[in-house]
Nucleic acid binder design. Sequence first.
DNA 1: TAGATTGTTAATCGATTAACAATC
DNA 2: TAGATTGTTAATCGATTAACAATC
Lengths: 220, 220
Amino acid sequence: MERNGPVSVSRPTIRRLPTYFPIVEQARHEGQDWISSAQIATALGLESIQVRKDLAAIGVAGQPRLGYPVTQLMQAVERCLGWNNVTDAFVIGAGHLGSALAGYRGFERHGLNVVALFDNDPEKTGTKVHGKDILAMSKFPDLVRRMRVRIAILTVPDEVAEKVARRAVEAGIQAIWNFTAAQLAVPGEVIVERMDLAASLAVLSSRLVAQRARLERSDA
Amino acid sequence: MERNGPVSVSRPTIRRLPTYFPIVEQARHEGQDWISSAQIATALGLESIQVRKDLAAIGVAGQPRLGYPVTQLMQAVERCLGWNNVTDAFVIGAGHLGSALAGYRGFERHGLNVVALFDNDPEKTGTKVHGKDILAMSKFPDLVRRMRVRIAILTVPDEVAEKVARRAVEAGIQAIWNFTAAQLAVPGEVIVERMDLAASLAVLSSRLVAQRARLERSDA
DNA sequence: TAGATTGTTAATCGATTAACAATC
DNA sequence: TAGATTGTTAATCGATTAACAATC
């Protein structure tokens, strides 16, 4: 009988889960059948209580004295993140970034399979990158329907992102992984996850500004 | 006389600031001298009170009835994020991802200037990408010192990330923008900001899993 | 049994949101 | 003045952390 499924796993927990996996995998590789929350926590610089909370949230039960069963733990992470059943995706925009993502081997283990790339540049269409076809954007809607692809990875220039996203949604795309700086306005049922370069750089920059201010203060 | 400087601007605020900028810029472009928190908020799907809190945090004062002065607002964002004085950076790893980042024009406006790329592949070294030299990794330490570069953008394969990061820190790098999946162990004074592909994909995937579960439930 | 580790319940912390007085 | 908008103070919410009982 199936577990009722997690009510809802919080976003911070979801974001930490992928980092747990290689730690536990490594432990299994070294012959461990059990792993403690403290062992995971120290490997990642976290508190063990946070690891225990996260594991409780995804429905993994530990055993006092022993810790958590590594195989079950890994399966729970895979189930929660959908790593067990691979989902197809199209990359839109076959520039450097799109090509990098199309060639990233880590995605396969993370349940994502890039099937093909799409681009409007006739110089690129018809060629391949990392063994994957670059197709004309005009073929996109038809292929989304025929292959029942749900995910689009958006790596087009910022200026056209909004328009391309609209076309993708019209073609039936249900989730967009947005690598552009554009704020996409899409219907409520469409999932948009933004890979926010500017936000990440902002955090880095502000920390550098603070660091520099600290140094100047200690100079004076 | 200089303002005392923000005590500390929270991370969520820092991450939102870059999205405010183009909205305000656009308003100025259209001739507005003042912009209200509500105007910014609706453009981004936020609450106006959150915008006011953020602006207060970076030291912008508004005027009842009028809103916030657009020029001052933009300057405050630029100051807080260090967009006014451009910082040089080296990209380590001249693959597709590194090349994409080296060619991203948005960085200039965000205070980041990619000076050169480094790679170990002799096929790549000596060539250029987006007008920027790809140099042998052996030249990295010397150039960091001579050019006083503080930021390294890490786009090497995951397996070598740890080792390369160590070399970068030894060479004097003070901040690493980490695009690899590796957890970097660096001295406390070195800033590491991770661009976490796996975390972002995890959020996307879990939302897809939830969406699918919803659909199946409504089927039954 | 003794002791290590989980898991529960409560406390703390930080950020968001609400209410409303202050202000131009 | 009247009214729109800021900015302050308090309430809420969610996540992290702490304390400790339960358990093997």
